[in-house]
Amino acid sequence: MCTVCGCGTATVEGKAGEAHAHDHSHSHGHDHAHSPDHPQPHEHHNLSRDGHHHDHADQSNDHAHRGDQAIDFGAGLAGVHVPGLDQDRIVRIERDILSKNAAFARANRARLVERGVFTLNLVSSPGSGKTSLLVRTILDLKPRFPITVIEGDQQTSNDAERIRATGVPALQVNTGKGCHLDAHMVGHALDTLDPPPASLLFIENVGNLVCPAAFDLGETHKVVVLSVTEGEDKPLKYPDMFAAADLMLLNKVDLLPYVDFDVAACMANALTVNPRLQIRTVSARTGEGLQAFYAWIEAHAAIVVASTAKAG
């Protein structure tokens, strides 16, 4: 498991790694072709897909392996609780765990819409070039819009400093142990940053293709950035982020001559998980494709500003 954030690491399909002890041995009768660009520490994620049968892989949810006790078949409340025989009682709650974040996100959104602040939540894996893209975008769009930036990272203010060097206000939010920004953090950042009316707000999320997908910050759109030095199957590997986004920027296209990256396959993968996803290919380094991204921003920002003007 990820020791920083507590994210689960399924080492075998359908089962978490740390919670059940392996007292059986795996025999590996299949060949692993390890290509040199194998992206991650290899933990035999796809054993059963390779034809190697793992005893646990197919028993999806009919029993629970607890860290502290024996295998527990259907230890449901109904089986152990006898109403009226003890003083125990059942309290119905029926609340979504993410409801707290959703409430903060609603408040942020209301506040941003009221002021006509067009807000983009930029998400990607670390190293896709979000900050470079943002620096370039700010320099190009600064003459046209007031811009503010919220920078999310676990540690350091390096990114906020890079943004401030462009001359726009930026606020760093350090999440500490957290691997995503949540709506509560962004609410605090808005208090401090106070984005001006009819402006652009960029929120650069923590580099992480998993967790930020589930946390609405109150943004107008999520923009997922993928670079051509990553795998073209990332939309399939991390579908939630691509499903949650409205726009995908395929960055670093200036490197295409040097890498084996199939742009068409990548786009097809992204559209498989999100048929409504819009895609632009860009290079923050050369500026290629950025005009199309700016046009997208202007068109969508106009909608927000116009609706605010009408309401006001």
Binding site: C5, G6, C7, I97, K100, G178, C179, V210, C211, D240
Partner: peptide, 14 residues
């Protein structure tokens, strides 16, 4: 996903 943050929200609600 981020199970620690979720568990914190869960326990806060409880």
């Amino acid at each position: 996903m981020h199970e620690l943050a979720l568990t914190e929200s869960l326990v806060a609600i409880v």
